[in-house]
């Protein structure tokens, strides 16, 4: 597995020529500036003693003002010989090995035609009812004596048995603002000069939010 950190720019559409046909495809642009390796985790030390217990690579991206970073974190970035970063993500079992402080560019990790998983924080929707939150279909009809309950959940506690509400029954509540992973999105283009990544379809999150890409 390998991965990268990017920033969602926004959506647009692109024409793709596939043999005889031209497809008009919706796509998302991701700003993927070079990431810095801030920590290399290894199972064992060179002398065979236990180090971290697993292999991983910690990447960091996005600039952050020095006054907004805690002292322990400043020390962490100093070790990697880099400026303070905004987002830090650990990727387990990275395909290629890198040294501490190395800069990774997007074209080293992703090529055109790869399939990637994209992780982001979805847009917060606030307190929403069951129709929007869980895809309930609502009551259905508006006639036959129905009024004021078109989008209600219906019965939640049945009859004399169980005469209570089971744990985990889906109800209204805070929606969105969650970590969401979308799998198998195709990389349509990699533009190294601008550090841009073009991915087919939509990805979770608002514009300018950080997204994690995995392969």
């Amino acid at each position: 597995m390998s991965g990268f950190i990017g920033k969602k720019i926004g959506m647009t559409s692109i024409f793709i020529t596939e043999g005889a046909s031209v497809k008009h495809v919706a796509c998302t642009l991701i700003q993927a500036d070079p990431c810095v390796v801030t920590q290399v985790k290894r199972t064992l030390n060179e002398d065979g003693t236990r180090k971290d217990g697993y292999n991983a690579l910690q990447l960091a991206a996005g600039e952050r003002k020095e006054k907004n970073v805690t002292k322990p974190m400043l020390g962490h970035f100093k070790k990697a010989n880099t400026t303070p970063k905004f987002k830090i993500v650990e990727f387990k079992t990275f395909d290629t090995t890198y040294d501490l402080g190395a800069e990774i560019t997007v074209q080293e990790v992703f090529q055109e035609g790869d399939f990637v998983d994209v992780i982001g924080i979805s847009k917060g929707k606030g307190f929403q009812g069951v129709v929007k939150r869980h895809g309930f279909s609502g009551v259905g009809g508006q006639t036959h004596g129905q009024h004021n309950r078109q989008r209600h959940p219906g019965s939640i506690g049945a009859c004399s048995y169980p005469s209570r509400v089971f744990k985990g029954i889906r109800m209204a509540g805070r929606t969105g603002n969650q970590r969401v992973k979308i799998q198998n999105l195709k990389v349509l283009k990699v533009i190294p000069e601008k550090n841009l990544l073009v991915i087919s379809g939509s990805i979770p999150g608002a514009k300018n939010s950080f997204v994690i890409l995995e392969k």
Binding site: T12, I14, L29, K189, I191, K194, L196
Partner: peptide, 8 residues
């Protein structure tokens, strides 16, 4: 939107 398309 136009800026995004322009970037691409």
């Amino acid at each position: 939107q136009a800026e995004i398309q322009n970037l691409l």
